Amino acid sequence: MVSRKIAVPRLRAQLDSALPEEIEDETRLLDLALDEVDLSDLEAEHLEISGCRLTRSKLAGSDLEKLILVDTALLNCDVANARWSDAAVTRVAIVSSRMTGFAGPGISLQHTTVQDSLLDYASFRFAKFQKVEFSDCRLQNADFVSADLSGAVFQRCDLSGAEFSQVKAAGALFVDCTWDGTKGLSALTGATVAASSPIDTLTFATAVTQAAGIKLTHPDELAL
């Protein structure tokens, strides 16, 4: 297991369970244990969620501009098709959650782990990753255009069809990931790619070669 000493969420031993009757702009949700709570399609600006544990809860379709998410764990949650533009995420753990179609343009993630989660078609355009780790996640067709991945680790992630054009990748680490049809690989300058299987190494090398517009062939196929 690769580790960059990512800080875990700081949660109180005793958490409350009562939500405010109305959640609106600048509402603060502090030190709550939210089990099977449905916040689907919630719309708010500058909402703060701090010191909370959400279990089997729904944030699907939520539109939370400039969300502040701190010291929080999301366990088996549904965040599909949510839009959290310009959110600030710090010391957050997301486990076994559904984030298909999630959009976080301009999001800033620090000391954040995402494990065993589905993020197909998720968008992280112009996002910034500082001490962020994705492990055992499916990120098929995810969009990282113009993101700063310099502080990101991807372990055993399926990045098939993902888009990495114009990213900053110096310092990024990819371990045993799947790269079928991944786009923008030429932008991963300065990243480290590690693969346990020689076949996976060859697959990645071939994908990079194709991205650079280089054609590989056998000498017997050339008319010399």
Rank of each mutant, 00 (worst) to 15 (best):
T206W: 06
I214V: 15
G181A: 00
T182E: 05
T209S: 13
D200G: 11
C157A: 11
A207Y: 10
T203N: 14
K183T: 02
V167I: 10
T201K: 12
T192E: 14
A170S: 01
T203Q: 10
C157M: 12
V175C: 14
P219A: 13
Q166N: 05
K168E: 07
H218K: 08
A211P: 01
K215L: 10
E221V: 03
A194H: 14
L216Q: 11
T192P: 04
V167A: 03
A162W: 01
E221G: 01
A207N: 06
A212S: 05
A191N: 06
G181K: 03
I214C: 15
D180T: 12
L224F: 07
C177I: 00
D176N: 12
E221Q: 02
D220M: 14
A194E: 15
T201D: 15
G190L: 07
F174V: 06
G161R: 09
E163D: 15
L173I: 02
G184A: 05
G213F: 05
L216H: 10
A223M: 11
A162I: 00
D180V: 11
Q210I: 02
A170K: 02
T182M: 06
A195L: 03
V193D: 02
L216E: 13
D176E: 10
A211S: 10
L224R: 15
V167N: 06
A207I: 11
P198C: 15
A169R: 08
A172I: 08
I199T: 08
Q166R: 08
K215Q: 07
S160D: 00
T192C: 05
S165V: 05
G213A: 00
A194Y: 13
A169L: 07
L173K: 11
I199Q: 07
D158K: 14
L173T: 13
K215G: 10
T203H: 05
A223T: 01
G171I: 00
A187P: 04
T203D: 11
A172E: 07
D180A: 15
T189M: 06
L185G: 11
L188H: 00
L216R: 12
T182I: 05
D200E: 08
F174W: 14
G171N: 09
L188T: 08
K215A: 15
D180Y: 13
L173Q: 11
A223F: 00
T192F: 10
I214A: 13
T201N: 10
T178H: 14
H218C: 10
T203V: 13
L185V: 05
A162H: 02
T178G: 12
T182F: 01
L202F: 13
